[in-house]
């Protein structure tokens, strides 16, 4: 009985780790621009597919491939911001969000052209059998994903709270005009936030592909789930997204295990609706902060 429960829990951790990493990417752009970047899922796909390209197709060593993948995703983020967000004359948030949807469709098209419709995968970071705890198994790669998520959180926390650029990014999110007045180069900050979130997305893609495989059209599903957890945790709260991710993953798994697997996606949606109804600021967001938000 306990074995079964543990197994459900570990399965939830595996999916939850994936959601958490995507949810974090949403927060970076949101924190500096108040934009919800719906192309976030595509960054994750780019991470997985480029990693495959560098390791399996170009046969480069693992570390080099990972670095190249993250850099190329950063480049995509940069291009996306410079070519589609910056030229917008009106800085209407809703318009910008719609632009990100358009970009996500475009990216999916390009990825399909380059990689086709097949699924891709490469071996996990560390080979070997899954780890057994009280009869339940957990894949080594899941531990990697959780570990990488943790490292990302710590780094991002320091970046946003201790560095000048990070603080400047947060200032931009609160009030762009005020940020400009104190001498912050807003345009540059927005660009950096896109590069950063593309990189975080790509890191997520690199980590989850050995577990879940990657194909060109996985982006929307990841974006929806990632968005869910970002809202659950309170938009803009890095920790919130991570905890939200694991909560959602585990809830889905428990629903599948103890109620029925056909219902698990419905549960996620019901929870999200409930949060939006009763605690719109998210589990970890404060109501005062939510009122200051533009979106």
């Amino acid at each position: 009985m306990i074995t079964v429960f543990l197994q459900f829990l570990f399965s939830g951790l595996t999916t939850g780790a994936v959601y958490a990493l995507v949810g974090m990417g949403f927060n970076i752009i949101y924190n500096s621009t108040s934009i919800i970047n719906l192309a976030q899922g595509e960054f994750v796909v780019i991470g997985g597919l480029m990693m495959w390209f560098f390791t399996e197709s170009a046969k480069l060593p693992f570390i080099l491939s990972a670095v190249l993948t993250v850099l190329s995703a950063g480049l995509v983020g940069l291009l996306m911001e410079r070519l589609t967000i910056k030229p917008l004359k009106k800085t209407d948030l809703l318009l910008m969000i719609m632009v990100t949807i358009a970009v996500s469709i475009l990216m999916r098209g390009i990825l399909m052209f380059k990689f086709g419709k097949d699924s891709y995968s490469y071996p996990p970071f560390t080979a070997g059998e899954p780890i057994t705890i009280a009869g339940a198994i957990i894949q080594q790669q899941t531990l990697w994903v959780i570990g990488i998520t943790g490292v990302c959180i710590v780094l991002l926390f320091f970046f946003f709270n201790k560095t000048i650029i990070g603080k400047a990014m947060r200032a931009c999110a609160v009030d762009t005009t005020a940020a400009k007045l104190v001498g912050i180069n807003v345009s540059q900050i927005v660009m950096i936030s896109f590069i950063l979130s593309a990189m975080v997305g790509a890191i997520g893609g690199i980590a989850i592909t050995p577990i879940s495989l990657m194909e060109y059209d996985k982006g929307p599903m990841l974006a929806v789930k990632g968005f869910c957890v970002a809202i659950m945790g309170g938009l803009g709260r890095g920790r919130g997204a991570v905890i939200g991710g694991f909560v959602l993953g585990i809830l889905e798994s428990m629903t599948a295990g103890y109620i029925h697997s056909g219902l698990k996606d419905a549960v996620a949606l019901v929870i999200m609706l409930a949060i939006l109804f009763f605690k719109p600021a998210g589990i970890f967001g404060s109501a005062t902060m939510a009122r200051l938000r533009k979106f």
Binding site: V4, S11, S253
Partner: peptide
């Protein structure tokens, strides 16, 4: 009798139930 979505990344839960 278990189900999963087309983009799901882990089916251990369903398989555990089948095993049980």
């Amino acid at each position: 009798d278990e189900k999963y979505g087309p983009k799901d990344s882990d089916m251990t839960t369903q398989l555990t139930k089948i095993k049980a």
